[in-house]
């Protein structure tokens, strides 16, 4: 039986006056996947996420969450989806626990079971001792945790995190990722945008790279990395080299003391590189090779170079 995708985008377009924030985006996110949405600032990631959550109305196109349209069947989609927005939010009138209770109420959830879930969320996100505090008294990291608790209060099947670790310290970042991984293992679909590409590389099974309102690349993380047409070679020399022949100079991406890093086409053989090094009369003490990181793939894609 064909599985309904967790999220489907069909030619989603968003226009702000002259600016095309989203240019007919179409792709889908499989159920139960950990999906990364990457792109430079202004690429359209948050616009896409906000359109998916119903926070903005697309100019045209359709978005479906588990087969339900986000406009026509919004009551269904909002129950399925939990969003951790990028901007920090506060409410000067209520404590964290009261906010969670109110948010539960909007979804028609109350009673002992819901109170227990709220208690569990507060505990899991290390907010228990602050549960009676007002959000305006909290630090940025604490506010971020409150947003995560708010997004999870109705136990959504699809969790969308819009740069959840922005401005968060290393400890909390690690805690958040552990928690997110746990939710994913429990069967939640997780959609994530982040500027920490090494985290996206470690966490996401599939990645879409956006730029200027378009999806530039969409594939599994492994395929994206292996499809990259370059590899990186680190050459350590017995002494620093000041002049390189053109073949080496044009491939040089990093120079540090006696170490040189070359970006080499996968089609180019190691023999070729060794020949160039020999031609340059360089004394090589060590050579190591590695594939491109997600950051390098990302930079190549978003800087307009062909990969």
């Amino acid at each position: 039986m064909l599985q309904i995708p967790a999220v489907e985008f069909h030619q989603v377009k968003k226009q702000y006056g002259e600016l095309e924030a989203l240019k007919e985006i179409s792709f889908s996110v499989e159920e139960g996947s950990f999906f990364g949405l990457l792109g430079p600032n202004g690429a359209g990631k948050s616009t896409l996420i906000n359109a998916m959550s119903g926070l903005i109305v697309p100019s045209s196109g359709r978005i479906k969450i588990k087969g339900f349209d986000v406009i026509d069947d919004y009551r269904h989609t909002r129950r399925i989806l939990g969003l951790v927005p990028q901007e920090l939010i506060s409410d000067p009138f209520f404590s964290i626990r009261e906010l969670l209770q109110l948010q539960s109420g909007y979804f028609g959830l109350k009673g002992a079971k819901q109170s227990a879930w709220i208690g569990e969320l507060l505990e899991r996100l290390a907010l228990s001792d602050k549960s009676d505090a007002n959000t305006s008294q909290l630090s940025g990291g604490m506010k971020r945790r409150v947003l995560i608790a708010m997004a999870l209060v109705h136990k959504p099947q699809v969790l969308v995190l819009d740069e959840p670790t922005a401005g968060v310290d290393v400890d909390l970042r690690r805690t958040l990722w552990e928690f997110t991984k746990e939710l994913h293992q429990q069967g939640h679909t997780v959609i994530l945008t982040t500027h920490y590409l090494e985290e996206a590389e470690a966490l996401c099974e599939k990645i879409a790279i956006m730029q200027d309102g378009e999806v530039k690349a969409l594939d599994s993380t492994h395929a994206l990395l292996s499809k990259h047409t370059y590899r990186y070679l680190r050459v350590t020399l017995s002494q620093a080299a000041y002049q390189l022949i053109p073949a080496l100079e044009q491939r040089l991406v990093e120079r540090e003391h006696n170490g040189l890093v070359f970006k080499l086409e996968k089609t180019a053989s190691m023999t070729e590189l060794l020949a160039w090094l020999h031609e340059n009369q360089l004394q090589v003490t060590d050579i190591s090779s590695r594939d491109a990181s997600l950051e390098e793939v990302f930079l190549d894609l978003t800087s307009g170079e062909t990969t």
Binding site: G54, R78, R79, L81, L83, E87, S90, D91, F107, M150
Partner: peptide, 18 residues
């Protein structure tokens, strides 16, 4: 206007309230 300024209107907008 306070909900808009503090951003907490988002919580209501994300809920299944018509």
């Amino acid at each position: 206007i306070q909900s808009k300024m503090h951003g907490n209107l988002t919580f209501v907008l994300l809920s299944p309230i018509s």
